[in-house]
Design a protein around this nucleic acid. Structure first.
Lengths: 344, 344
DNA sequence: TGCCGCATCCAAAGCGCTTTGAAGTGATTC
DNA sequence: GAATCACTTCAAAGCGCTTTGGATGCGGCA
């Protein structure tokens, strides 16, 4: 299919490129009449300005980069990512931005950011999977490339933009809820605790135990990639202990599904024999029940977080001198069918 | 951080832009000595050619577009997408390509492709979620933009490039496996049957029934977005029928998890009271057991499919005149713990 | 009549790169 | 010594757009 460019369109209209460009970009120094004529012709010939040429001229790429760390050992794309970009993508689309995804190995992170910056591929980036100690923040600040972090970095005390869930409070509340129900053997099935979010959840969990005067038992704490299999295996191990867990606090609904499998396989019932609270990102394909939530959960839409992060980033790009902005989302504690009083 | 451009680098070296450009791009008409000198300087100053400028000059964008249809009713990003792009992304990275994602509403599809083409954002695209009847193929062929389909389009008889799983055969075999075990009430929990892959699975299922001389009972066939909740609800309904299903053939491990939940909630056991076979895309976060597969399954790595599709597309871009290429992946039928002989 | 201001429009430069066509330099050949 | 050649290097054009700094024409005003 043939595609017209500005020069040809201008020639076709008997106008200069300048005028056509201005007409299409809504500049005032062009009469309403010609603007309409230009618009009509552009529409008819299906003219779209070439992104690269436009970008070269304006110095902006109208694209946002998402950098996903993948440790070379287990190259997984977290399922919450899908819903996150669904939210972000909608915001981008509304504002005429494209979304480019980079899957980067842990070692190459630094280079990846430099490249993105030097090559000018994107106008800003969203940082995924921040760790408790993460040099990327400092590095990105140096680079002068606008960015927003999905999550936070505890080690970083200079200000930067982020969108995060109040993970600590969520898990604190969840733990307290379980201790109030009389549970004393509460297991924590957490994500990798090098990840910032997981460390915060851990802290919330510990605070909850402390509130109830319960000791921290490291045997009850597991920390791994949050797969279904992890939930299953960990639950089995923990229920087989001499002094077994009676409640599980789980970092992802995916692992919670694994816990449920282990529980049900033993002929036990969730909410009666074993209590489970999970964090629920409101994944579209793995919803927590329809009417009554299946799991009691700390709920926070990751899709919404994506939309928010995208918006913050676009604002930052529009106004580069603005101070870093933060958004702390509170998770709801929703009551489901997976929790109940501890057996006597 | 300061970034150098070609002009400055050339000036710094006391060479022309031509020579520097050629040195860096490996052209022969430059002496080894100067090439080394140039490379060293480029490395030292962290020079990366600007993507947009390079693209403008070469006419290529070094980016691949992934277009995800999202019906406006339920805007879901399929979880298999994550693993697919993990596979594709690796191939792109190795070849210096970027990956840009477009989330497009069903109505805007046509326009989205025109735009992508006219704006020159990408050199080729991967088409996701093809339907049995899908005009996008014809349209893309018209556009002259290289593309590869993840899946196929039954309505299309002109050749085009695709990567697909042999869904029909996989579900045929799975059905036969169940009938061989003596099951006569086999339910099909399928994806939306407007989707091509789902239609093919349906056909395989029907062929399997026919082979065994079993009638097609439409009450046993469900077709929806493949969520966990769908599996749960459908399983409950089908087990409550007067002449209930004793086996389930499920299109996604996510829905299979829902089926399992329904089964276990009733105190029934998978593989003994109820048989389940699911399709298993080998999702990294939802693996089908570790040593012994939990579910008997038709298995095919969607991550691998992503890598293959990407490779086909890059080949096509490199050699635009080549004939369309296809890759039909055979699913393995792996035996797990979720199937057993029908109860007498 | 002459001048100014306003509303429109335009030519040309520039964004950072690749690539064409040509030129400079020795070394080699007759 | 001139002509040829291979090897390096370069100046400049061009990719498709935006934007600067004029031009042009017209009515209004003194």
């Amino acid at each position: 299919m043939y595609t017209m460019n500005l020069k040809e369109l201008a020639a076709h209209l008997g106008l200069s490129q300048t005028t056509v460009s201005r007409a299409l970009n809504g500049y005032p120094e062009v009469s309403e009449q010609t603007r309409r004529r230009v618009s009509a012709a552009a529409e008819q010939h299906n003219y779209r300005p070439n992104t690269r040429a436009k970008g070269l001229a304006t110095g902006r790429s109208m694209a946002i980069g998402h950098v996903l760390p993948m440790s070379s050992s287990h190259e997984m794309v977290n399922p919450v990512f899908g819903d996150f970009i669904a939210g972000a993508g909608e915001t981008y689309a509304r504002n005429g931005y494209d979304m480019v995804i980079s899957l980067v190995e842990d070692g190459d992170q630094e280079r990846a950011y430099r490249d993105l910056r030097a090559k000018g591929t994107v106008d800003g980036i969203i940082v995924h999977g921040p760790k408790s100690t993460d040099h990327r923040i400092a590095q990105l600040s140096d680079l002068g490339l606008p960015f927003v972090v999905h999550g936070r970095v505890s080690s970083e005390n200079a200000p930067y933009s982020w969108v995060d869930v109040n993970n600590r409070r969520a898990f604190h509340r969840a733990t307290s809820f379980l201790t109030d129900l009389g549970h004393t053997r509460i297991a924590l099935l957490n994500g990798l605790e090098s990840m910032d979010f997981a460390a915060r959840r851990r802290a919330g969990y510990e605070a909850g135990l402390t509130d109830a005067g319960l000791p921290l038992d490291l045997d009850l704490c597991r920390s791994e990639e949050m797969t279904e299999q992890f939930g299953y295996d960990a639950a089995n191990t923990l229920m087989d202990m001499p002094d077994p867990a009676t409640a599980f606090l789980v970092s992802s609904i995916i692992s919670a599904v694994g816990v449920r499998r282990a529980v049900q396989e033993r002929g036990l019932a969730l909410g009666r024999d074993i209590s489970v609270i999970t964090h629920d990102d409101e994944l579209s394909y793995l919803q927590n029940g329809s009417d009554i939530p299946q799991f009691t959960a700390t709920r926070s839409s990751v899709r919404y977080a994506g939309a928010q992060a995208a918006q913050l980033l676009l604002d930052k790009i529009r106004n580069p001198l603005s101070a870093p902005m933060n958004k702390l989302l509170e998770a709801q504690l929703v009551l489901g069918q997976s929790t109940g009083p501890a057996a006597k």
